[in-house]
Design a protein around this nucleic acid. Structure first.
Length: 493
RNA sequence: GGCGGCGUACCCAAGCGGUCUAAGGGGACGGUUUGCAAAACCGUUAUUCGUCGGUUCGAAUCCGACCGCCGCCUCCA
């Protein structure tokens, strides 16, 4: 049984078969870079990162494209609105491109911290203006779009498939329209492909229809086609983009190409904070940087990026997730438990007696892989996949307590941690800082000296002196642990 | 107004017709270990899955009603 994914288009969980054997073309809607990435971005990109990692684990060659939206579009589809990037540029007294640049870097920094693999291609919207104009032109030529007053709109009445992704009919939309409909449109559901630039609009380009800028759905269509082809395997994004964004993408792409746009549409659910919706316009959002190092009034402390990743993976990508200090704290504890088991295994590996892996353990590991793969195949059940990792942690800790444990056994367990926990889930690191770089080595030596002093004191039954050393180190976030056999180890709290 | 989701132990969360007297994590409480800690290990912590009905030999899982949360429909991940 192979991988099954829930396809929003068909509303069913389907067997995944790529268009081309062994190869997957995948596009995920990227961020608009006018601010630091927040928890919502975290959930989104961790979810799809795991998909990419798992597809690769299964042996597929994946081409992963994720755009960077560096041109703010409209505040809505109905009026000229404000350019989000332009607005931020005015606020920071910088050029819009400087805003886009600095937040793009910030975004990658945060994604790296979350162990999200970089996409193969991160195309910028502003780098694809000619292609976007071309698409609009094609749509006009084919009779799917019309120009009014320097703006171009998609003519929904010419495209009967409109609404197939979100399950809406054009009539419903007309009835439920809450936004002021532009008078330029023939039909309220028509959407902008190209907008005429208002005098103050900084980001604008020349087009056959005069100075203007692209509508907010065109870039994804264009960049997806350019780098992945007319029809791709997977297009991912947030559930809030199902409509109108993805619906419009389908309409304009399929109308222009006469070919299906996407085989599998995947949508992840939203994030709440303390039980409430988190949105940019609500100003109650927590940025990743705040969680990782700056702090936030709703948080009692900062958290490890990978603890955040773990929290995200603890629930299903199609379920909403509520971030709270308690949830983060629990995830941090769980993450620490995994980390300690892994580092414990790696340290012990070098000291353990040589020998082949224990047969029972080998069997257990094989069972773990089976369970893990079955869970991931079931529309990425990362919650169960994680539970497999925790079972592995238990096994590792049990084995670590035994003297007869061989290097082979530990090697086998470590291999499993690396493959399932590292390669696929991305929460087990290749290397942990302790005993790695120069500063860490120095630190290890210094703490080693303290440990030695404490050992001497304790040997002389001077426990208060020994405890003092332990307490002092604790103030700097260093925890000492006396292991069986008189060995003392240290770790960061 | 339209559409969709959710309600499982103290908290988070998986489960989607029998293997459920319901994974996993956090927390709490016992025990082992320890000079004391910490960590780890062992054990305990839902005979029950919002409520009430129904379908079925059998339901947390399907159907209906009700109660309570939440999200989308507007740039947003």
């Amino acid at each position: 049984m192979g991988l099954k994914l829930y396809n929003t288009l068909t509303r069913k969980t389907e067997e995944f078969t790529p268009l081309e054997e062994g190869r997957v073309r995948m596009y995920v809607c990227g961020p608009t870079v006018y601010g630091h990435a927040h928890l919502g971005h975290g959930k989104s990109y961790v979810s799809f990162d795991v998909l990419v990692r798992y597809l690769r684990y299964l042996g597929y060659t994946v081409t992963y494209v994720q755009n960077i939206t560096d041109v703010g579009h409209l505040t809505d589809d109905a009026d000229a609105g404000e350019d989000k990037i332009g607005k931020q540029a005015a606020r920071e007294h910088k050029h819009p491109m400087a805003i886009a640049e600095s937040y793009t870097r910030s975004y990658f920094e945060d994604m790296d911290a979350l162990h999200c693999l970089r996409p193969d291609i991160s195309p910028r919207a502003t780098g694809h203006i000619p292609e976007q104009i071309e698409l609009v032109q094609t749509l006009i030529e084919k009779g799917y779009a019309y120009e009014v007053n320097g703006s171009v709109y998609f003519d929904v009445s010419q495209w009967p498939g409109y609404g197939k992704l979100s399950g809406r009919s054009v009539e419903d939309m007309q009835a439920g329209a809450r936004v002021q409909v532009s008078e330029e449109k023939k039909h309220p559901a028509d959407f902008a492909l190209w907008k005429k630039a208002e005098p103050g609009h900084i980001m604008q380009w020349s087009s056959p229809w005069g100075r203007g800028y692209p509508g907010w759905h065109v870039e994804c269509s264009v960049m997806s086609m350019k780098y992945l082809g007319k029809t791709i395997d997977i297009h991912g994004g947030g559930i809030e983009n199902q409509f109108p964004h993805h619906e419009c993408e389908i309409a304009q792409s399929e109308a222009a190409n006469g070919a299906p746009f996407v085989k599998y549409w995947m949508h992840h659910n939203m994030v709440t904070v303390d039980g409430q919706k988190m949105g940019k316009s609500l100003n109650n959002f927590i940025t990743l940087k705040q969680i990782f190092k700056e702090g936030h009034e709703r948080l009692s402390r900062t958290y490890d990026p990978l603890a955040v990743r773990q929290l995200i993976l603890q629930s299903h990508y199609r379920s909403p997730i509520d971030f709270s200090d308690a949830a983060l704290s629990a995830a941090q504890s769980g993450y620490d438990r995994i980390t300690e088991a892994v580092t414990g295994v790696r340290k012990q590996k070098d000291k353990a007696p040589a020998g082949a892996a224990d047969a029972k353990i080998t069997e257990q590991l094989a069972g773990a892989v089976e369970k893990f793969v079955a869970a991931m195949n079931d529309d990425l059940n990362t919650s169960i996949a994680l539970s497999v990792l925790f079972e592995l942690v238990k096994t590792a800790n049990q084995v670590l307590g035994r003297e007869e444990t061989t290097a082979g056994t530990l090697e086998a367990i470590d291999g499993m941690f690396r493959r399932l926990g590292g390669e696929v889930l991305g929460i087990v690191k290749e290397e942990y800082p302790q005993a790695a770089g120069g500063d860490e080595r120095l630190l290890d030596h210094l703490i080693g000296m303290m440990i030695e002093q404490r050992r001497t004191a304790r040997a002389n039954k001077d426990f208060s002196a020994g405890d003092k050393i332990r307490d002092q180190l604790a103030e700097f976030g260093i925890v000492l642990e006396d292991k069986p056999g008189g060995v003392t180890t240290w770790r960061r709290k």
